[in-house]
Design a protein around this nucleic acid. Sequence first.
DNA 1: AGTTGTCAAGCTAGT
DNA 2: ACTAGCTTGACAACT
Length: 295
Amino acid sequence: MKIGYPCINRSIGCTANSTFRLANYSEHRLIEKVGNNLDCLQKILEFNVENNFLFFRISSDIVPFASHPVCTFDWIDHFKKDFVSIGSYIKKNNIRISMHPDQFILINAKDENIVKRSIAELDYHCNFLDAMKLDKAAKVQVHVGGVYGDKDASIERFIKNYNLLPQHIKKRLVIENDHNRFNLSDCLQISSRTKIPIVFDSFHHECFNNGETMKEAAILASKTWKKSDGVLMVDYSSQQGGKVKGAHAQSINMGHFKQFLQEIAGLDCDIMLEIKDKEASALRVHKYISRLETI
DNA sequence: AGTTGTCAAGCTAGT
DNA sequence: ACTAGCTTGACAACT
């Protein structure tokens, strides 16, 4: 079981998701930003290896505007050496990688243009992972999309559009249950017809489910992962008190987390801690787990 | 140097 | 009708 946190490290003093304004786009700026972001990504990964965080989500902002029409620059070729070098570091240290394109990515949108832009964005994510020469266990996770007042039709549209995706996207794309639109059983329905693996989001499952216990749900999701996809990815969080339903906790609630670990005991998975304070909470989790291992 | 409005993109529920 | 929330900050124009 690997533990990770998403995108941002707050203790090493650099970010791998630095961007700029579209209005200020220039090739020079793009090269500068991507160069810095890749340098910082390497530093974050080194920090992670030292601290035994072997699961990491790379920010979608690592190559700003990569899928925007304004970007015609061949960044894959320009940074080829860096990609290969970071990729070998990832493989050498057996780090699991994921990416999570933003909320604008809607494979099942009714508007063809949104679908087109979404595919362009997925293409960017997959090209990025391909450039690092990572195997297909490095995943790109999205939500199913919008309901548009007709869930069945929206599921059909997802499946239809998914089947049309190019192979280099299909091999990495996975779906995640969300907290108010498509829950685990909706995702399972899609998975049974497309064989797409499901990232299990435990917090979303608490918010929105079809009566499955945490353990049942995690096992159902894990069965959608083939050997070559790697083990089940889990997104873990809990409710931030005083905020609207679905708001992620600012810092980890260890009691809640321990109970979650007990509930899914015996299931191999990699856990992404979607907690706002990032590695601070991840360090507390590690302390707890290493204590368990020494007992 | 510090503050603050704004940033490519969408959907949903809650106010 | 409007906004918070979602991987959420961080950019950049303004004091």
